[in-house]
Structure formats: C-alpha cells, structure tokens
Design a protein around this nucleic acid. Structure first.
Lengths: 241, 241
DNA sequence: CGACTTTTTGACCTAATTCAACTAATGTGG
DNA sequence: CCACATTAGTTGAATTAGGTCAAAAAGTCG
C-alpha cells in the first residue's frame, strides 16, 4: 500500500502513476516526533510544510483563561500548514496526540509541485477547501446539535476520513482520544463527555475504548448524528491499492 | 473614498495606484439584489465570483431539522466564493440580509488577476486565509464562551471589520441584525439572545437598536469578550483615503 | 508496587431552552 | 390616515442540558 499522503490526494483528484511515484519519492525523508509535542506553535513563522505519515495531531488554541479549543484532527496523509506556511505567523498551534512520523516539505518543493504537477496541485488545493468546509461543519455541529450528536458526528467524520486512508477495519479504528480532548473539541466538560459516551454506548451506537473506537452500525450512527459526508469531497470511497 | 473592495484589499496588502485603478475599473458593472435573496444556494455550481459592494449577506446552511447555522457575515468589500467557485458544488448558501449591490467577476477576470496582478492576488489569498482564521475564531467562540461574551465577541469583530472599510462612526455602525439571526449565528435561542443583549445593555457594553449597534467603549467590550483582532490580519488600521 | 492519569459516578448548581403570552414596531390595503 | 396583519422584541414560569465540585474506581507505566 502506498503511504497515506498519496492515498489521500489520490482520493481527492485522480493522479497518474508518475504523480504518485513523485509523491512517494518526497516521503523518503521523515522523522519521528513523540506524543504531546507541538509541531508548530502560535506566533511561529513556519517555513516547511508538515505532512503527517503516521500518528495523530490536533490543531488548537488556548484562551486567556487556559481553556483549549481543538479546531481539527490531523490524521495520516494530512498536510498541516500548507497555506499558512506561505505567509506570516501562525494564529494557532499544532500538537501531536500520539507519536508521529512527519515529512517536512521545503518551500522550494512546494513551488516545484505547483509548477510541474497540476493534478497534485489541484489535489492539495482541494484538501485545503475540505479543511475549510470541515471547519464550517464543526461550527454547525457546536451550534446546532446536542452533546451526544456532536460526539457521534465527530466519530462519523473520523471514521470516514480514516477509511479513506485505509485505517479502519469494519467500523472500528484506532484513535487514542482522551475524554478531555473530546471535551476540548466539542466545547463540553469532561464529565459531560463521559455521560454522553455512556448514552451512546447504551444505545449501542458507539463503543469507545482507551485507544479504539468501534461503531457497530456506521449508517445508523450517521443517521443519528445527521452526518452527510459530502463536505469531505471524497470522490472515490475505495482508493486504489 | 474608493469602494469597499479596494479598501479592504489595500488594508491586507499594500497596493500601488495601478492596482487600485484596475480594481476600481472592475467595479463599474454592478447590480442590485434585494434583501433575503440567495446569491448562491447549496448544490449550485457557481461560475462567477461575487463581490459585495454595499449591503450585508450571510453564509449559512440549513439542517435537516430546519435549523440554520450562520458561518460568516459578509460585508462590503468581501468576496463571497473565490475558492469555491473554482471547483464543484457549493456546500452552503449565501443569502443577503439587506439590499445589496453586487459585482460579479468572471472566471477569466479572476485568471487575469492571478496572471498580471501579484499584489492583488496576494491580497485575495490573504483574504481567504482570514476567512478560515475567522471560522476558527468562531468555533472557539461557540465552544468556550458564555452567551453574552459570544455576542460581544461578534460585535467586536464586526466593528473591526466595518471600521476597516470605513463603515463605522465612533463606536457605532449600521447593521440590521435580527435577534433570530444572532441566535442562528451563536447557536442560541432567540429568547436567550434577547436576555443576553439585555445583560450587555445593562452593563453599558453594547446598545443594539433595530438597525444600529453602538459600543460606548470599544476596548472595554474587547476586554470583556476576550477579543484579539490579530486573526483578521489587518495590517493598516487606517486605510488610505 | 506506588505515582499518575484517565474514567466513572453522585450531588448540586447554573446557563440556556421551551412554551406561552404580551408589547412594540413595521407594513398594507381600503 | 386608520384598521389590521405581520414580524420582531420582551418578559415570565417551568424545564432541561450541561457545568462544577468532589471522590472513587480503573488503567498505565516506570
């Protein structure tokens, strides 16, 4: 199987063999980062673009009162800071939540892509539009849904995205989320996240174990949460192997 | 005073006289749209890019349960759908909340800009990054702040943005928002918006009249709401006349 | 085995919703 | 210009979703 980055981009826009080979070549030099490290911090002036090959990270920001809001989950294949890297200072941070394997692309590599790889460029471009659409979907999630449905919706999204890079197995996937992180994502207290998860468990909608999430019936959960995956713009549900 | 579009872009990235003149030329052909009309609807495949010259609009989406979430307020100078226009179907709608004057830019005009006007291109690019940063800020707003502070934060943002295009007068600005619209923005019921506005009024922080908002002390409101305007990336607070 | 973090539960409290009524405003046709 | 309809804003009372505080039960890990 090719790596998650190639797989993701290929799922957004059909790439030819040469494009895929080129991208695989870029992934040769990677480095490891342990859990709970910041890849980029608020105020940094990032140069390289980070691509996550393995592991999970979050986009987040701390408020003056010490609260944390998580804006996005970054999973294998995701490009963290393509747009932001090209301009000024970061207005949020990106931190790992598990050990990660990261590829850094230099500005000149990015420039080479935009100059010589139109299909890849378009895929990256689409990826950033999906990021923005996802942000809107999260806003709707926080604004209009109950705690249980918010959490259910997030799980549907993560399942869909992880499936697209081949990281699910029949309704279950690995993702070591703490209930505190879930709360910081959904604007809920940890206690209430716990109780909501209990509700979901008792309704047999989701089972959350320390580092695994299991969805017995994906379509039932999607119906419950009002999840419509079209905002993720996944053209192919089954990317080529 | 030049129009709001030129003024906004010039506030994001310094434009020279030729760029400004070019942009003014683009604004010659505009048309009017009455209030409560959709400029673009979910599922549309938009071709032209819409620029608002006068009036206000919102980005929004309806849920299956008939609830509405507003994602953004579009004010004079804002470009509604630059990125989305270049690809597939709209995943949200844009509707006017007042009568508007709109300019439509054809794809070929957009292409001409990117080919021949690097400073303008960069300003448009920055504008789309600001849109995304604003979405993150709204998510944090819904996730972490009380009803009163959410509303206060929105008013701070609107004041700052409207000031940048010259549409404020000493802490007050015109914006005919209903309390229902505010509720759909903040994920609050109309009733609770009403009570929260009462609190803000009694604390002498904000005074909201049918089509006008008055902030007696902008910096006091900003402190109350935890508003930090840096996400709006306004390099110049006082754009040239 | 401790030390630590995460999850779970109980009791209590508060913010926000719902339902319902009532009061401005705004607008329309005669 | 008034009578009537309509929409938006305001208020009260009852209810509920979610938060806070605190402590116990499970995991995790050196």
């Amino acid at each position: 199987m090719p790596n998650a980055f190639v797989r993701k981009l290929d799922g957004l826009e059909a790439l030819d063999a040469a494009d895929r080979e080129f991208l695989v070549g870029l992934m040769n030099v990677s480095h490891r980062v342990s859990a709970d490290e910041d890849l980029i911090r608020v105020g940094d002036n990032p140069a390289n673009v980070h691509v996550i090959l393995e592991g999970f990270a979050v986009r987040y920001k701390l408020t003056a009162q010490g609260k944390r809001q998580i804006f996005a989950y970054l999973i294998p294949g995701d490009c963290c800071d393509l747009q932001v890297a090209l301009l000024g200072r970061m207005d949020h941070s990106i931190g790992t939540i598990t050990p990660c394997r990261i590829v850094e692309l230099s500005p000149s590599t990015v420039h080479e892509i935009t100059r010589t790889r139109p299909a890849v460029t378009r895929a990256l471009w689409l990826a950033s539009l999906v990021d923005e659409a996802t942000l809107r979907e999260w806003l709707l999630n926080l604004g209009q849904r109950s705690a249980q449905k918010r959490i259910a919706h997030l799980f549907c999204e993560l399942h869909t995205r992880l499936k697209a890079v081949g990281l699910t197995a029949d309704g279950s996937f690995e993702l070591p989320l703490t209930q505190t992180e879930l709360g910081d994502t959904m604007g809920l207290s940890t206690v209430h996240v716990n109780r909501s998860l209990k509700d979901l468990r008792e309704a047999n909608l989701v089972l959350m174990k320390p580092d695994q999430i299991f969805i017995p019936d994906v379509s039932r959960l999607a119906a419950y949460a009002g999840f419509d995956p079209s905002y993720l713009h996944l053209k192919r549900s089954t990317p080529r192997a």
